[in-house]
């Protein structure tokens, strides 16, 4: 008999299976391709590579600037994330908790960077920076990423700031808390999930950003995506691209899992009132 709960279980497991396949197949393919032995190529009739080795990995590490690119990417991303959050916070606070004329317009304006194609921004950003006298590639890309991704932080933090209960703020002040004390007691517990989420999103977007890093940085300054794209160009070498792709993806997944755990433990704060 098809009872409803059984049907639901079936559908749920089917859906899970599809999603797993969707995620795992490309992942597994990338892993396999990255392990193909350079001496024995993987070609049409073979279902699996004939020989596996870590030679592609060592080759990529030794012959390219991958280590520099990784250093660049993994220092740019957290710094861009923290800077974006710090700069977005006052705007988000104002959007969420202060009424001022032109608020609706201001909110739309802050979101416009999201609708511009990355290349368009990148091309003009590069020339603006030069005319401002910013020649540091690192600084330029950092600034670019902050500008590009601040809207996400503003958006997320606006929601967080709006959730802070005014009565809890008043209670903290009433009981003698200083400015910092009020922030810790009334704001931070509610803001924390939003701050972590903003960090995660800006971090990942920055790690994966290509257009600006390429236009501003190339050829001398590399990030992981610009290296990756160099293997997708005229001399497309799939195993090498697979190595870089994995390097790009794995830390993101790990970071996401860690932050997800943090978010869960950070949230006793389903702010209650009525009971």
């Amino acid at each position: 008999m098809w009872t409803l709960p059984r049907l639901q279980t079936l559908l749920a497991s089917l859906l899970t299976a599809v999603f797993l396949l969707w995620l795992i197949v490309p992942f597994a393919m990338a892993l396999l391709w990255s392990l193909v032995d350079p001496g024995t190529p993987w070609s049409y009739p073979d279902i699996l590579p004939p020989a596996l080795s870590f030679e592609r990995w060592t080759l990529m590490w030794e012959t390219t600037t991958l280590s520099t690119a990784m250093f660049n990417s993994y220092t740019l991303a957290p710094v861009a994330a923290v800077t974006a959050i710090v700069l977005a916070a006052p705007t988000a606070y104002a959007f969420a908790r202060i009424d001022f004329p032109g608020k609706a317009a201001a909110q739309i304006v802050t979101l416009t960077p999201l609708v511009l194609p990355g290349f368009v921004t990148a091309v003009f950003f590069a020339s603006i920076l030069v005319s401002f006298g910013v020649y540091s590639r690192y600084g330029a890309i950092l600034l670019g990423h902050v500008v590009l991704f601040i809207p996400y932080a503003v958006r997320i933090l606006t929601v967080s700031f709006a959730q802070v209960n005014q009565e809890v703020i008043n209670a903290a002040r009433d009981l003698g808390a200083s400015g910092w004390g009020v922030f810790r007691a009334a704001f931070w517990p509610v803001l924390k999930p939003g701050v972590l989420a903003s960090f995660l999103i800006v971090f990942i977007l920055s790690i994966e950003e290509f257009a600006l890093a390429f236009i501003v940085g190339s050829p001398s300054f590399t990030t992981i995506p610009t290296i990756l794209f160099s293997y997708l160009g005229y001399d497309f070498i799939r195993p090498n691209a697979a190595v870089v792709a994995l390097i790009l993806v794995v830390p993101n997944v790990l970071l996401m899992l860690v932050l997800e755990r943090l978010l869960q433990s950070a949230n006793p704060a389903n702010v209650s009132g009525k009971g």
């Binding site: 009565e167 809890v168 009433d174 009334a186 517990p189 006793p268 389903n270 209650s272």
Partner: peptide, 21 residues
Amino acid sequence: LRPEARDTAMCFQSYALFPHL
């Protein structure tokens, strides 16, 4: 005088307890 400097304490309608404490 600011609220923190007054000899008052308030009981709020929503209780306004600190949810993480």
